[in-house]
Amino acid sequence: MESAFNLEGRIAFITGSTRGMGWAEAKLFTKMGATVILNGVHSRELLEQRREELKKEFNVDADGYFFDVGDWAAVQNCYNSIFKKYKRLDVLVNNAGTLEDNLVGMIRKENIANTFSTNTTGVIYNLQLAARLMMRSKSGSIINISSLVGKVGNEGQVVYGGSKAAVIGITLSAARELAPMNIRVNAIAPGFINTDFIKPLTPEIYQQRLDAIKMKRIGQPEDVANAALFFASDLSSYITGQVLGVDGGMIM
């Protein structure tokens, strides 16, 4: 029986896909048959390495674009290239994100600008251009990675939480606007996930976060990738404007 999660023939662009959740999504989508387009901003070498890894494991030639999702000109160039090569886009995962914790009173304006540029403005930039490509085929799925912090807040995360709460607002509004074109827009709100974001945490904070999870384990990037696959696939073809928690029952 053909898998309900089959993405054969679909073009999927995943921002921030050289590490963590984005990389897990890239591997899973490729495994399920999608043509995945990678994006990274921290290291050209890592982006190239990831392309090689996909080639080695799945025998595919994935494109990779090195740019900052908050750079409008660079985003436009990327979508022009996608259009020239593929003429279409079926799935966008707005995964690129940045995190810098600061308590109220200690927040630098550069931190606010950088965080919102990547986590929020970049989502709108990509969503807008992806939707235009999807309109041609009157179908598509846009998946925005928000955060549990964007839903319930957390100490030290006024900026990050604000940027991720905005992603939920973007998702809900875009879902209403794009539904008549059969373009679905949903968000995923991950909880405590084993990515580079948790590296700066002290052992005490790490344990506190772990203790707040009812399933008693940290989430893995693959847990988020599985949820993204659901939204990318036809199994969610009648679902839009939803925010799916992937948090193991975490209470913050």
Binding site: Y79, K84, K87, L133, M135
Partner: peptide, 24 residues
Amino acid sequence: SVAHLALVASVETEFDIMLASDDV
């Protein structure tokens, strides 16, 4: 406004181009 986006998609498809956002 809704028809405008469909129009843009139709023009782009007809001429095989992608318009800059300012042009849209």
